[in-house]
């Protein structure tokens, strides 16, 4: 099959790629751009490990054609780190045991990033609903709730990373 030139905007950088129409966004990210943070965990669009943001909206990279994404802004886990430092949610997932084996973590981070962008102070129910798009096999999700609450507090105080003023949780 002949390839076509596609301009993909990923993590604020434009990439011109020669790809086949049938290539999935996930394979293209992983194999053409070496952005291996997005994972393949299933083959039936059920696990969410490949979640990326497309124009700010979480979607499954395994369920999108790369060629269909031309002209859209794609953000992968590699684009979440802020100025080379951990984003609040990344740090909180580490601190609170939100990541064990870590394979599902990038997908969860993308889902949660969108949740916090649209709902800065989510209720527990809202968090649970958002997390229900992604499967995790290690944590039972419990410690993720703690991580998200911690990230919300850190974000709200604008003090992500400033441990001196980190909230004490009681």
């Amino acid at each position: 099959m002949t390839k076509q030139l596609v301009a993909l905007r990923v993590n604020r950088r434009l990439h011109e790629l020669a790809i086949e129409s049938s290539w999935l966004l996930l394979d293209t990210l992983r194999e053409q751009l070496q952005l291996t943070g997005s994972k393949r965990g299933c083959d039936d669009s059920s696990c969410g490990a490949c979640t990326v943001l497309v124009d700010g909206i979480p979607m499954l990279a395994c369920t999108l054609l790369a060629a269909s994404c031309e002209g859209r802004e794609i953000t992968t886990i590699e684009g979440v780190t802020e100025h080379g430092a951990l984003a609040a949610i990344q740090k909180a997932y580490g601190d609170w045991g939100g990541a064990q084996c870590g394979f599902c973590t990038p997908g969860f981070i993308m889902t949660v990033k969108h949740l916090l962008a649209t709902t800065p102070k989510p209720s527990e129910e809202k968090i649970r609903e958002a997390l229900s798009s992604n499967l995790c096999r290690c944590t039972g999700y419990s410690q993720m709730y703690e991580a998200i609450k911690a990230a919300v507090e850190a974000e709200q105080k604008g003090l992500a990373g400033d441990e001196k003023n980190a909230p004490s949780r009681t």
Binding site: L60, T111, S133
Partner: peptide, 8 residues
């Protein structure tokens, strides 16, 4: 399905 699926 799930919220992410409903985005698509």
């Amino acid at each position: 399905a799930s919220p992410v699926i409903r985005n698509m």
